[in-house]
Simulated scan of single mutants.
Amino acid sequence: MKLFRLAAVLAVLAGPAYAQMPNLNLLQDAPSKTPEEKAAEAERDKAYKETLKKIPDSKTSNDPWGGMRSDPPKQPAAPKASAATSAPKKSKSGTAAN
């Protein structure tokens, strides 16, 4: 039982130290690109950006429920300062506060 406790304590103490270790990738994921592949990719990117410029900006709302909504709720009027100070405050029981 003591050995189990010792292993649990070591695992808890080693967790934060393990989390601080850098993630090293010693193997390359893919080989580097040839100059022809780089040129072809640059040409594709340029054509893509030119195509994006041809798309017109949307001026209308795309809200399908826009016609179903009513006017936005109106803000309630602010209470008048003179009416709030002249009226006596009432407690929860309904009697005037002293």
Rank of each mutant, 00 (worst) to 15 (best):
S93R: 05
P76G: 02
K53S: 14
P35R: 07
D63Q: 11
S58G: 05
M1Q: 15
E41V: 02
S82V: 12
N62V: 07
A78P: 04
G67S: 10
A39K: 03
A97F: 08
R69L: 07
L52D: 15
K90T: 11
A19P: 00
A19W: 12
A81R: 15
Y48S: 13
N25H: 13
T85N: 11
F4Q: 13
A81F: 11
P72F: 04
Y48M: 12
Q28A: 10
P76Y: 06
T60I: 07
K38S: 04
P76V: 02
N62A: 14
T60F: 10
P88M: 10
G94C: 01
S32W: 05
K92N: 05
S91G: 15
K2V: 12
A84T: 13
A81G: 11
A42V: 00
Y48W: 14
A7E: 07
A30N: 01
P88H: 09
K53Y: 06
K38Y: 06
D29I: 05
Q75W: 03
V9W: 12
S82N: 11
S82H: 08
S91E: 11
V12A: 15
A30G: 01
A47D: 06
Y48R: 13
P56R: 10
F4W: 12
P79S: 12
S82T: 10
L52R: 14
T51Y: 11
S82E: 15
S58H: 12
L27P: 04
A40V: 02
A81P: 15
F4N: 12
L26T: 06
A83L: 12
A40G: 04
E50P: 01
T85Q: 09
E36L: 07
P31Q: 10
D63N: 15
T34C: 08
A19V: 13
A40C: 00
P56A: 06
S32K: 10
M1D: 12
A81L: 15
G94A: 03
I55T: 00
K92H: 08
L27R: 02
K38I: 14
S86P: 01
Y48H: 14
A87V: 14
K90A: 01
D45T: 05
A78G: 04
K46E: 04
Q20Y: 08
S32M: 11
L26P: 00
D71V: 03
E41G: 04
K53D: 12
P72D: 04
V9A: 14
K38R: 09
S93N: 14
E41Q: 10
L3N: 15
P35Y: 06
K33L: 15
G66S: 06
P35N: 13
P16Q: 06
M21V: 05
K53L: 14
D63H: 09
D29E: 11
K80P: 05
R44G: 02
N25E: 14
Y18P: 01
D57R: 10
I55R: 02
N25M: 09
S61M: 06
L52H: 08
D57P: 03
K54C: 05
Y18C: 08
P79I: 07
M1G: 15
T51D: 13
L6M: 15
A8H: 02
T85C: 08
A42S: 02
K80I: 07
N98K: 15
L10K: 00
